[in-house]
Design a protein around this nucleic acid. Structure first.
Length: 277
DNA sequence: AGTGGCACCTGTGTGC
DNA sequence: TGCACACAGGTGCCAC
């Protein structure tokens, strides 16, 4: 389900119920996600939550006994359940954390591409193997048109696959890569190194704008994404190309085309998005 | 080193 | 109705 906006919407949903609470219970169903649950997760029982942050698509729950890192994979989502809401875990519920206030955070993940890891107290979670080599946050320091121009200039693969490469910038998945390229008028098949300085400026502005806008609208719900409150996102109504094969381009009326790049579907307008030259 | 291909897993929709 | 197949928002490992 989630690209960066969906993860950020989820983070904002769980932050107020977790901060200053104490974790009373950790539960998992034993079925491995992308990797098995560590027995060390039990160390979090009794821990006081200090904050809930995010790096790329990873949610970090910081406590005085270590950090819990959650990744939602393709189909994961977190729900906040009050004591009154609570019911027994269902088929694809894999992980739960319950606080001393009786609130449960539940991870449901149909495809089990998600991830739950524990980073011990004293270790910097940002330096853990999954996080340390990630590129800059698109809405943070270190991401700029100049930076983009610099990295893309060294890449021969397509601009679409480059934008989705977390070493270039984190948080842009298939949906937003397609949308950003449409908004910037750039063909997804263009080699990254052919992108001009001016186009990098457009890409930068569109990436920042679309991510902010999607966050403000509660994320994009294609199939089964919902925020921690269970509400669907509304951004899907704003999509220009993603999932719109054979439908008219909202700008020029040309039918939107679909192709496959790196085993992922790409949607584009053949008229609005030109290859250079 | 950079890149493309595939694997991980389950569900849904489509076409025969 | 049943079956086979393609496809789905992510990431990491492998071989070239």
């Amino acid at each position: 389900m989630p690209e960066l906006p969906e993860v950020e919407v989820t983070r904002r949903g769980i932050e107020p119920v977790l901060v200053h609470a104490r974790i009373e219970r950790i539960w998992h169903d034993g079925k491995p996600l992308r990797e098995p649950f560590s027995p060390e997760l039990k160390k979090l029982e009794g821990a006081a939550v200090r904050g809930v942050s995010r790096r790329a698509k990873y949610i970090l729950i910081l406590t005085d006994k270590g950090t819990l890192i959650i990744h939602l994979g393709m189909t994961g989502h977190l729900r906040v359940l009050t004591a009154a809401d609570y019911n027994a875990p269902g088929k694809h519920d894999h992980f739960e954390l319950t606080t001393d206030r009786g609130v449960t955070i539940r991870l449901n993940d149909i495809r089990r591409f998600g991830l739950v890891i524990f980073i011990d107290k004293g270790l910097d979670p940002l330096q853990s193997p999954r996080l340390r080599d990630l590129g800059p946050e698109p809405l943070g320091e270190g991401f700029s048109p100049e930076y983009l121009y610099g990295v893309l200039g060294r890449m021969k693969k397509s601009i679409k696959q480059s934008l989705m490469d977390p070493k270039v910038v984190v948080g842009i998945g298939n949906i937003y890569a397609c949308e950003v390229l449409f908004l910037s008028g750039i063909s997804p098949f263009c080699r990254a190194c052919k992108i001009s300085r001016e186009e990098c400026e457009k890409l930068f502005c569109n990436i920042v704008a679309i991510l902010k806008r999607s966050i403000s609208m509660g994320g994009t719900t294609i199939r089964n994404f919902s925020g921690a409150d269970g509400k669907m996102g509304y951004f899907v109504q704003d999509l220009y190309v993603y999932g719109r094969r054979d439908q008219p381009c909202r700008r020029c009326g040309t039918l939107i085309k679909a192709a496959v790049q790196g085993q992922r579907s790409t949607f584009y307008c053949p008229l609005c998005q030109k290859l250079p030259e």
